[in-house]
Structure formats: structure tokens, C-alpha cells
Amino acid sequence: MDYFAGIDVGSLSTDVVILNGGGEVCGYSIIETGANSTEASEDALENALAQAGIGRGDLVKIVATGYGRVSVPLADRKFTEISCHALGAYYLFPYTGTVIDIGGQDSKVIRVGEGGKVVDFTMNDKCAAGTGRFLEVMAAKLRVPLDEMGDLSLHAKGEVQISSVCTVFAESEVVSLVARNHPREEILRGLHRAIVSRVWSMVKSIGVNGEVTMTGGVAKNSGVVVLMEERLGKTIHIHSEPQIIGALGAALLARRAFG
């Protein structure tokens, strides 16, 4: 049987998805990227191969994506994560018209057309506001574990307004809010609102089309998802492992390239 691998080398994690010829996922792995992305891609691939119970020789094509896509020597081709997220989301949720991907370093909104093809997209500018990095900085400042901050924010009774756009300014705002004894949950709620507003501008500039799927690590944050759904007025599709959508799309592209 033919197998296809997609490798997504991101700034935080390196993810691999393996598909069989029928297009079914038969193995995946998520590891930290660390300092050497070539090594990370090798390791992640080995893990996924082991999970699928196959060897490297069974792979027909490998596609790399993500920031580290250039440092994956084993890849036959590379594609940007924009094409990969669009295709991955389309594969999982075929009525997806819009993909919102909030990753560690950047966020993207993608308009998906027929067959999972990218019709239009936008990405945040250089600034970190509106990315996972923003939440990471704030989580550290508030001494809240990153994976708990979303749920905590949902327990807020009220909400404080974070007025600055800039991560650095917002950080100093948070410091003074803490100093004035504002409840942590309310500050968190405000922070989540701030990131959603930033991403919302991007959503509007691309336009909401059909169903919405969220990908990327921040999709695991319930606080962001709830506020985004509020803005959209509709529910968002989220896969249980939203980080691997890029790798999945890459594997699908590998399979498509062979077919």
C-alpha cells in the first residue's frame, strides 16, 4: 500500500500526519520543534511511522509546510501552511468556507473555495498582537498556565477593557490592572476580547463565507472560541487536535501530487 506524509514544522511544534492511499489517517505525532527543525522533523516522522506501523520506505511522497519547511531535506515538495490549512480543514469539514488559524507566531484567515483551494487569505502584520504569542506573554505575566487561561476567562463575572493594541503596551496595562486588584478572570476575559478583536478585523476583511473552521493551537482555548462564536453568530468547527491540520493538509497535498 502507498503512504503519504505531511510534515508541519512550526515555531513551537512539529507535527506529522501519515495518510494511506485511501486517504485515511493512520498515524500522527506532535513534538516540540526545539532548536533544530531538521532533527525535529526526523523525530516526529519516526514517531508517526511507528504509530502507523510502517517504515520510511513505504512513503511515496512527503510534503513539508510551516516556517521550517525549507529545513526538511526529506520532503519532495513544500507548500505554505495557508494552502495546507485550507485543504486540511476542508477535508475534515467539507462545508468549510472560512478558516481561522491562530498560531503561535501569526494568525491567518483563509477563504476556502471548491476542493479546498485557497481563494483569498490574510495574515497579521509583524506585530504579535492577535497571535498565540500575545496570550503566552499574558499568561506568564498573570502566572496562569496557558492551557487553563481560556476556561478561567469564561468564569469571569465582569470584564475589564484592554485598550492597547500593542503587546508591550497591553502588558503594562495588565501590570497596572493587577496592581489595582482587578480579578484575574476579568483581566483574562479582556485579554481574550482583545485578541478576538484583532483577528476579527482580519475575518471581516476576508469576509465570512459558509461554515467556519478554526485551526492552530489557540483553537484549544475555549475563551477565544466562545468570544469568536459570539462575534460570528455561529458555531465553529474545531478538530480535537487543531494543531495537526497543517500537517494533514500537507499529507493530502502529497497524496494529490502522486495521484
Binding site: 501552511e81 487569505f121 509583524k126
Partner: peptide, 15 residues
Amino acid sequence: LSGQLNTRVEAFVEM
């Protein structure tokens, strides 16, 4: 050309 800009241009070309 930052990695981010690079990605945007490449994605545009793929599109």
C-alpha cells in the same frame, strides 16, 4: 524578506 512575508508571497503564488 521575513519568513512571514515569504510565506505570504508563496501562498499567493500557490493560490
